[in-house]
Design a binder for these strands. Sequence first.
DNA 1: TGTAATTTTCAGAAAATTTTGAAAGTAAAA
DNA 2: TTTTACTTTCAAAATTTTCTGAAAATTACA
Lengths: 166, 166
Amino acid sequence: MELDEGKQKFIQSWGTLGSDWGINRTMAQIHALLLIAPESLSAMEVKEKLNISMGNTNMNLRALIDWGLVYKKLKPGERKEFFEAEKDMWEIVKKIVIQRKKKELAPMIKVLDEITAVQGKCEESDEFCKVVKDIKLFSNKADSILDTLIKADSNWFMRSFINMIK
Amino acid sequence: MELDEGKQKFIQSWGTLGSDWGINRTMAQIHALLLIAPESLSAMEVKEKLNISMGNTNMNLRALIDWGLVYKKLKPGERKEFFEAEKDMWEIVKKIVIQRKKKELAPMIKVLDEITAVQGKCEESDEFCKVVKDIKLFSNKADSILDTLIKADSNWFMRSFINMIK
DNA sequence: TGTAATTTTCAGAAAATTTTGAAAGTAAAA
DNA sequence: TTTTACTTTCAAAATTTTCTGAAAATTACA
């Protein structure tokens, strides 16, 4: 395998992984492209390297910026904008966790709370009540664990996990 | 809000959460329905409660069984099959982790390994090589953390995290 | 064995998501 | 101010994913 082939493969795989992770394919591919770019790239360069339309490029670059995975960079003397990826893996993971927590966990917790307001009507034996209680317990735990992770730095995280594992 | 309304809401939310998690909407809704069902249900009952086709019901019940989230149960004297959800939250999470690890993490690690075979051709300065190395480190770490989690039991997990957090 | 109940399969339909392309918007330079 | 380079928007098209419905397969019972 040649180096360029490897890069291509990496971009494709990152795209696939992304789409499994609620990040759309193109968004993840742009991220991958910027991750391995030695220099920041312009929107036009991204468009051309990935063979996608300008509209698509623009929308997904915006989304990446929203997520905090890509930064806009202005080069002095250059009119157009350049883009640069966040390259610290721990930062990347944290930013993804923040987004997914907001998009997924928060709404679930909200619904669970609404449902709990009704729990008075529950028979002790009612399966529904038991399940909701369990899930609530679990979600709240997950919520606070993730909050801790988000605040933590990489070393701390690794250290904790190493302790946990041994 | 009435109890039935609450149940409905729960099924819908679990469906939405599912589709964010690589479990399709219907699959997650069936899981939710079975989670809060006091008794195991037949395929026909599932079909009717969720207003979906028999084909869809069958396919997603199979998928849930594959994932280990639902068990098939035969009632003596009854010809048809009944279905019952795994209700232990920790088991549920573990089973989802197992599937996603297989589907997402494993292929990524495979690609990274293939790519690494080419790394000889890398300049020390090449961004690509740095990034691949970082991601590999991270993925392998994630892989072994998840393996540990899968083997662990709920109490152990919680205990570790409580320690971690304080 | 034949019949009826139940389950499975899968091609095409429907729905959801992503992408394009062209037009509109902005702002630096001339 | 006009031109030019670039960015943004968004309706419609393309693609991908999910669902249906009907037919085929399986199984249990008579």
